[in-house]
């Protein structure tokens, strides 16, 4: 088990009802974490979702480590 923090933005923040949470998880990768949280929250289907760990984009296969901060990134719409 690792202790991590998840931050939510925009449509995911509104869906979860919180901007962040601290979690204890047995998920091995950020992709596994997404699937675990999707079972809990039933996230809206968002097509081109990206993910960041510790303020850098990363692959879904990135291993989770104690103290990581994870952000799932819905399709962006700047400008």
């Amino acid at each position: 088990m690792v202790q991590i923090r998840v931050e939510y933005f925009a449509i995911l923040r509104e869906h979860v009802g919180s901007a962040h949470e601290a979690l204890s998880t047995s998920a091995a990768t950020v992709g596994d974490l997404y699937e675990e949280l999707d079972r809990r929250y039933a996230f809206p289907a968002l097509g081109r979702l990206k993910v960041a760990v510790n303020d850098e984009f990363c692959d879904w296969s990135t291993p989770l480590q104690d103290g990581d901060m994870v952000v799932f990134i819905p399709p962006v719409a700047g400008g």
């Binding site: 925009a10 449509i11 992709g31 997404y34 699937e35 999707d38 996230f43 809206p44 289907a45 968002l46 097509g47 081109r48 979702l49 879904w60 819905p74 399709p75 962006v76 719409a77």
Partner: peptide
């Protein structure tokens, strides 16, 4: 949310990852 609501509506059968 721009680019998200339409995705949510149309991408229901697409795996997110």
């Amino acid at each position: 949310w721009v680019n998200c609501e339409a995705c949510a509506a149309h991408a229901a059968d697409t795996p997110p990852l």
